[in-house]
Design a protein around this nucleic acid. Structure first.
Lengths: 273, 273
DNA sequence: CGCGTTCTTGACTCCTATCAAGGAACGTGG
DNA sequence: CCACGTTCCTTGATAGGAGTCAAGAACGCG
């Protein structure tokens, strides 16, 4: 447990290094960076570890002991779990600047395996960074929690925010799976990818799909063939241009329109009113 | 609607009363009870409010300002939201002893409407109870968070636990919607109800379905007719006995077996291996 | 070039939604 | 007590979206 932090990088083992939040490209979006900043440099807790991952290799594996959250520094990752019957479920894709690992908080072990889709790197953020008292006052008031914009010493807030965001994401996934037909689900997926690419600093119209068709179909809970057909369908419609794993959004409005018209699609079920 | 209860109840308005956690039937399962117990009686924060709800009336409505979590004291509740296109999604049912309201934490407003299925009562637990410093030390160590059994002053832990549990529940919902055929989804639903009835202190084999077939179908994202057919199907198979909203589980093993065999059902998709 | 992996395309089947109608329970008013 | 409308639920017939089976194309790699 070394912790000579800040400017000097310290080797921990062959793979892990004490990260330098000051120089990190993602420091503006990373919740850890802010917390590390106003803490004693020599504090034993709160050491952010940097690690590089080879394509196809796991960052964490399901069942491993929980030891913190992870932030994606570079590259793309997918997470999945395998249920009792051996059925795999891809639970998400992770982009630079995003956080994963919250699934390990409660049980003490991660429930998802997260692996790199290409070469990438992550920072491990110990949970203590969010929960231990900082140098100064560490207590929270509910006002802190309810006004995220407010700049107080509420170390816990980022964690709550991360979890709430995950909750919201899961909920829209439930909605997508339950109430949307295949095409609408697919359009939602593309728009989500696009928005997150933008968030991560990429061109939102120029997607490099880093995952296989199989991954996408599993994630969207559709058959592989259905996904493939949807790619060609939207291509034919002139909404996107696809060539292998490179995708261009040609008609954003058209793509968004797919979310609202029901092309005979799935259930309408109970309308409001 | 009276409120001279326990020792001294204080009137707040026509509906709300300061709850008395000491005498509450649910105090062993309620996260608030423990926290209230070791706090100054006259503290301004942390007042748990008790409220009775008429059938069909909302406890909270989507869009309302977040003002705490709720615990079900008695009765049954359903929560739902209505999306931009006016499609309703029932997001869950809540049993005595369970908590709802976490969906309001991040945005500052609730995203779900929660309404009573029959006459019931709830306690409102202010978030401050989990976040404000108690009389004594209020700081947390990660050890507290990772060892739930440990009896330390970690007020935050219950909140994290509640959120993690919600997260886990949502995830299994995603799995159910994405990877299970209608019958398996239905069996999962019944088993879940049964387990939670037991948790709430009822007979796990004798379910009084407090929600309509429409609610169930919406929740499971199936057509109303499909749900109806499933009731009769399992009835014919001798697995359950249904009469209106009263349901008896006659063959638990048989019900559980439905989870594992694939009767031609939905996708198998990517198997592990 | 052969071979494996990934992706596309086509033909067919089946689960479940949709349409349609009939029953059963409940409340209200006569 | 019975007619009555309303709501909730069941059952049947039909149709369509997406899964499955099967084969072929495109790419990457040794």
């Amino acid at each position: 447990m070394n912790c000579r932090a800040h400017n000097v990088f310290t080797i921990r083992d062959a793979q892990e290094y004490a990260g330098n939040c000051q120089s990190c490209m993602k420091k503006t979006q990373c919740p850890a960076a802010a917390l590390v900043a106003n803490q004693q440099p020599d504090a034993a807790f709160g050491t952010v570890l940097h690690r590089t991952i080879q394509p196809g290799k796991p960052v964490v594996s399901a069942g491993e002991r929980f030891d913190g959250l992870y932030m994606v520094r570079s590259g793309f990752f997918k997470s999945y779990f395998i249920d009792a019957d051996g059925v795999m479920q891809v639970t998400g894709f992770h982009f630079p600047g995003e956080i994963f690992g919250t699934d390990g908080i409660e049980g003490g072990t991660y429930s998802d395996t997260v692996e790199a889709l290409d070469t990438g790197s992550v920072c491990k953020i110990p949970l203590s960074l969010f929960t231990d008292a900082p140098g100064r006052s560490g207590t929270l008031s509910s006002a802190d929690l309810l006004r995220p914009g407010h700049q107080r010493e509420s170390r816990m807030l980022p964690l709550l925010t991360i979890m709430s965001r995950t909750l919201a994401r899961d909920r829209s996934m439930i909605f997508a799976l339950g109430k949307m037909c295949a095409r609408r689900r697919f359009a939602t997926f593309l728009l989500d990818l696009s928005a997150r690419m933008a968030q991560s600093g990429y061109d939102s119209n120029e997607l490099r799909l880093c995952m296989s068709r199989t991954d996408i179909s599993n994630y969207l809970c559709l058959a592989l063939e259905t996904v493939s057909r949807l790619f060609t369908q939207l291509h034919t419609m002139g909404i996107i241009a696809v060539e292998r794993r490179n995708l261009k959004i040609l008609d954003l409005a058209g793509l968004q329109a797919l979310l609202h018209d029901e092309p005979g699609g799935k259930p309408l079920l109970a309308k409001a009113g």
